[in-house]
Design a protein around this nucleic acid. Structure first.
Length: 467
RNA sequence: GGUCCCUUCGUCUAUCGGUUAGGACAUCAGAUUUUCAAUCUGGGGAGAGGGGUUCGACUCCCCUAGGGACUACCA
């Protein structure tokens, strides 16, 4: 009897670098499953490798999870802080005869491992059944797990199905290092048990470890959690995701102008599906998510689809929020906007936020809004400003000046009406007007362009060329 | 080398023994058009190969090929 929630999941990164996209998806699946079940999602920092773990990495991972919106339901557990508890468990194992002191030097271990491999079996230390004499009293040793020599270990995996391992292929792995520090496979088992983890959802690079850990669970008399080994994410070329595939860290995606909801949606859809649903809310994902629907095969990152989803969320996002992001991206490029320019950009955002797949693209799409006068026209544009065109645009300018309302639809209508009145097609003045207003920078329909610039700026830019 | 996992359009996927194998992204064509997009309509495009099991296999089994993970006193 316990009051523990029925389902407890955890994300357990080792802080040796930033949070990469694969880890982000693992965290997401854990989060989704816990939410779906009304359970808890925990966080554990696996920092037992003191050499490679860094504060900066811990911060980067927390920041990444935070940005993604994956909040843990309890304070994170730092594995290294629990070393004493891990040692306790190992001593318990030694007392039970399920672990032993091994005095082999690393070199001896390598040699024995090689020999074992040649014989088609895993390493079994020669110290398995020996008690050291006084000669070893002050000699360094490690504590190894005394694995069964025969029989099978079966992992019932929620994603991969039933997977059988032969015990003879499983090493007598080191539980406690020479310096008394616990190793990963031991610490994971003890921590998952102590944290009440019911579902271990992690990358399938750990599937082999699940067998080793199963043995430790049994030796410790711990109840095993359910395992779910989800496939890894590969790069667009099918190879394991690495630096040459570009963005790996979730922070990179933020810098590139992707929204966290985009990543959640896209990543959830990678290796998991709910019928034909492609774009869905967090609530829907939580309601639908089920480990049974997770695929077994690895999937590749597809930038086009990521972009498509991001465009969708960019379109429907709060303009103020997107404006903040555009401003931030601009600032990162060294352009700090304030005052009227910032106000103009913010006001124009609802008109323009559907024009980019990323915030960075939006920055480019908004360049015409914040361009400084006088705009520099290229030769072609300058030549198109014939006497006739200038005269016509001047007439248009006067109408614009007295336009009763300055909104995109009204301006669009005004433009149409003007064309009719002049008895010409848009081709007779549209391109020239566009050149005057944007200097060839990307911009939307003229009605929207005028609206985005606001009346004063539009008229002033026209005056720059027409007067 | 050994152990284990994986394999449906270019990509992400649906299918859970009987479908013209569906959808999304991408792509191509057309429409729209004042630039670039967007949008709309339509098209092409898949069960790795070979054996079985079965009245009937994408679906179940085996082999081959290809891809991946693990094989540390890293996690």
């Amino acid at each position: 009897m316990s009051d523990r929630p029925a389902v407890v999941t955890r994300f357990a990164p080792s802080p040796t670098g930033y949070l990469h996209i694969g880890g982000a998806r693992t965290a997401l699946f854990n989060w989704l499953f816990a939410r779906h079940c009304g359970g808890k999602f925990l966080l554990r920092v696996e920092d037992t490798d003191r050499e490679r773990s860094t504060e900066a990495a811990v911060a980067a991972i927390f920041e990444g999870l935070d940005w993604l919106g994956l909040k843990a339901d309890a304070e994170p557990v730092f594995q290294f802080a629990r070393a004493e508890r891990h040692r306790e468990a190992v001593m318990d194992l030694v007392a039970k005869g399920r672990a032993y002191r091994c005095y082999m030097t690393p070199e001896q271990a390598d040699a024995q491992r090689e020999q074992a491999r040649a014989e088609g079996r895993a390493l079994r230390s020669s110290w398995r059944d020996r008690i050291a004499g006084p000669d070893k009293d002050n000699q360094p040793f490690v504590i190894r797990f005394k694995g069964p020599v025969d029989g099978d270990t079966v992992v019932e995996d929620l994603v991969q199905g039933r997977v059988t391992f032969h015990n003879r292929d499983l090493d007598d792995l080191v539980l406690l290092r020479t310096d008394g520090a616990p190793t990963y496979n031991l610490a994971v088992v003890v921590d998952d048990h102590d944290m009440g983890v019911t579902h271990v959802i992690r990358g399938d690079d750990h599937l082999n470890n699940a067998a080793r850990q199963s043995l430790i669970y049994e030796a410790l008399d711990f109840t095993k959690p359910a395992f779910a080994h989800i496939p890894l994410i590969h790069g667009p070329d099918g190879a394991k995701l690495s630096k040459r595939h570009g963005a790996q860290a979730v922070g990179d995606y933020a810098d590139l102008g992707y929204l966290p909801e985009t990543l959640r949606n896209y990543l959830a859809r990678l290796g998991w599906s709910h019928g034909d649903d492609e774009i869905f809310s967090d609530e829907e994902a939580i309601a639908w998510f089920n480990i049974a629907d997770v695929n077994k095969g690895a999937s590749r990152l597809d930038w086009d689809k990521l972009n498509h989803i991001n465009a969708h969320y960019l379109k429907s996002a709060d303009p103020h929020r997107i404006a903040d992001l555009v401003l931030k991206a601009l600032a990162a490029r060294g352009t700090v906007l304030e005052g009227p320019l910032e106000a103009r950009l913010r006001a124009a955002m609802p008109l323009l936020q559907d024009r980019g797949k990323t915030v960075l693209e939006l920055v480019d799409q908004m360049a015409f809004v914040i361009a400084l006068r006088p705009l520099v026209l290229d030769d072609k544009a300058t030549k198109s400003l014939t006497e006739e065109t200038v005269a016509r645009l001047s007439r248009l300018r006067d109408r614009l000046q007295t336009a009763p309302v300055w909104t995109a639809p009204d301006l669009e209508a005004l433009l149409k009406d003007f064309a009719e009145q002049e008895a010409v097609g848009f081709g007779k003045f549209g391109p020239a007007l566009r050149a005057i207003l944007t200097a060839g920078l990307p911009a939307p329909d003229l009605g929207k362009t005028l609206a985005a610039l606001n009346r004063d700026e539009s008229l002033t830019r026209m005056d720059d060329r027409l007067l």
